[in-house]
Design a protein around this nucleic acid. Sequence first.
DNA 1: TTGTATGCGTTATCAA
DNA 2: TTGATAACGCATACAA
Lengths: 302, 302
Amino acid sequence: MSAAKELGYEPDLIARSLRTGTSKTVGFLVADLANPIFAEVIRGAEDRLRAGGYGLLLTNSEGDPALDEENVHLFLRRRVDGIMLLTAHNGDGDGIDALPSASLPVIVLDRSVPRGSRASTVYFDYAGGFRTAVRHLLDLQHRAIAFISGPESLRPVRDRLDGFRQAFHDAGLEPDPKLIRLGSLAPGFGATSTRELLDAPVAPTAIVVGANRPLTGVLETLHERGLRVGTDIALVSCDEVDLTRLFRPAISVVARDTNAMGRIAAELLIDRLTDPTGPVRSVVLPTWFIPRESSASPPAQV
Amino acid sequence: MSAAKELGYEPDLIARSLRTGTSKTVGFLVADLANPIFAEVIRGAEDRLRAGGYGLLLTNSEGDPALDEENVHLFLRRRVDGIMLLTAHNGDGDGIDALPSASLPVIVLDRSVPRGSRASTVYFDYAGGFRTAVRHLLDLQHRAIAFISGPESLRPVRDRLDGFRQAFHDAGLEPDPKLIRLGSLAPGFGATSTRELLDAPVAPTAIVVGANRPLTGVLETLHERGLRVGTDIALVSCDEVDLTRLFRPAISVVARDTNAMGRIAAELLIDRLTDPTGPVRSVVLPTWFIPRESSASPPAQV
DNA sequence: TTGTATGCGTTATCAA
DNA sequence: TTGATAACGCATACAA
């Protein structure tokens, strides 16, 4: 018996899955592996899942909604026990498209879900962090503050913009709609938006970048125009990454704990896997503003 | 028959796996998901694997060799068809430790394997890129060139150092051994090494960073000492990432196509999966030097 | 407590 | 060409 196991017997997990109907595997759908932030989320999730005895089946849908659905379909055929969704789009309606109709637990990360959905969510309080950041700029006497972010269909984009607006309203001010550029998460959108903003009649004295990838495009354009960050124009961006931390002058950011997002999402999923009757929970994590040299007072005049 | 399939029948992949003995799943073991370079490799691999009908089971071993072996063991129990290994360590001997004794195809990425191993490998010609980079520095009349990299047990570290030495020898010169710091891939090692180098009797006029993560520590220390990159000290680093491309002055790098590494590794694996009698192939990809403003001539005197 | 049979959903084999 | 049957390796239910 036990002596037989000394010979190195290991239960075949495939056979066990077929018999028990549980694969001890979770499908993780990520929109864009190239985003360093997403890698951190996956790391947090994988750690927790592995500790719980689950494997992580990873798939990348490159921001293509059709691939989202195809990949979720494959998860189902592979009989994953649960699904974690970190997609690029938020669907046409109020929530994510790719939600499987099947009854297995789904955790949606950083996106909104339709009203009444059975999916758990993990989300960040973006409005809070951006409100603080923009208040900081207003305190420094900036008034022409631009906001560059992704498509308005994304909840993080809307919430960051909300925080931006709230800070203005808190100060009894109104943001200039012409300085708000919503469009895409691609770096190129950051570049063209910045060019347009700088060429407009009223150029901004500060730029708030409400997404981490467009920042690279923004920086490229500022370099190209010979503008010094923090001196000629103030800058606030998203996420604590090597670039924002080590750029000189260091770039002020609204930071968040992405590793925790992955870990907590895995936690929520494991909870629902071990107790399917449990409640559908939704967790909101904080964000916080880290002021640095990139956000200084506006140049003396104008 | 076909009408039955109209009702939405989908073969159960678990049952199929049990029956056929092939899971259409590949295990990907990565040492450190936090490294943005690794994320690109995974992206390349996942794209190709998905196209070939394979799923990617991802596990992160945080640079812990014990976890490496445990994770490979779990891959085996999950009956993956093949394994891709991107580990942190290279083992005590001549090659990687975690190689499973089982007979399934293994692809080792960016590491060396023991003589006579049945594993395929994908590797970069690091020596070539670093030789060019250091020749460039020597042409600019730098002589006190420091080299900071990870542990000598890693093949990429050894090969980058080889390129460094070759460039000196090509010029009929000898590198100063006191300026060579081999130790760890952690950012902190870059920081302490830089401090020691700057405090030594003969401080370097140029630093070559032979790894991408220590660069952050190097930059921190240079900032801390008030040294201007490209003006007070020349800098060459590894890998085209946001930080090296957008830092000002832009940082010269030895670049490589990490996405291609993942894609080609997946290709090699699929080849061996479809034709198990095929040869064990090893691919070496090029690296190339991108000179930028961070590598300028040394300050006029000394 | 220990042992034996059945079925999970496939695919492959063999008979018709 | 078509249809029934066995087996992959487990876990479970039931019998001893």
